[in-house]
Simulated assay, not measured.
Amino acid sequence: MDNTFSLLRGQVVRSKKGRDEGRVFVITEIIDDDFLFIVDGKLRKLDRPKKKKVKHLYIYKDVIDLNVKDLNDSYIRKKLLPYS
C-alpha cells in the first residue's frame, strides 16, 4: 500500500499517536511507503528528526517551503506557529 504517494517534503502534519500526540510537525524526508522523518524545531530539531509512521499522522494540505537559503529550527518554529 503506497501511503506516501500524496505526501510532499515540507508538508505540515499532526501526530495522532505516541508521546507527541497532538504536536504539529513538518515532513523533512520521506523514507519509504510507511515511514517519514519529521521535525518541529523545538523538541525535534533538524539535526535529530523523528522517524514516524504515516498511519500515526493527520495530514494537512499546507506545505512549508524548506528550500530556503538558511534553513534552521527557528524558521520551522515560526512557520508552524499558526497551527498550534
Rank of each mutant, 00 (worst) to 15 (best):
M1K: 15
M1R: 15
D2R: 13
N3T: 08
T4V: 02
F5M: 13
L8S: 02
G10R: 14
V12S: 04
R14V: 09
R14L: 10
S15P: 07
R19D: 06
R19S: 09
G22I: 10
R23E: 05
V24D: 13
V24G: 09
T28C: 12
E29F: 12
D32C: 07
D32Y: 06
D33S: 14
D33C: 05
F35C: 11
V39L: 01
D40S: 08
G41T: 01
L43N: 07
L43K: 11
R44K: 15
R44I: 01
K45S: 03
D47T: 14
R48D: 14
R48S: 14
P49L: 05
P49M: 08
K50T: 08
K50I: 02
K52F: 02
V54E: 04
L57M: 15
I59G: 00
Y60G: 00
K61F: 08
D65N: 15
D65P: 05
D65G: 10
N67Y: 03
L71R: 08
L71C: 04
L71M: 09
N72V: 00
D73A: 04
Y75T: 08
I76G: 03
K78V: 11
L80I: 06
L81Y: 13
P82R: 03
P82Q: 08
P82F: 02
Y83V: 08
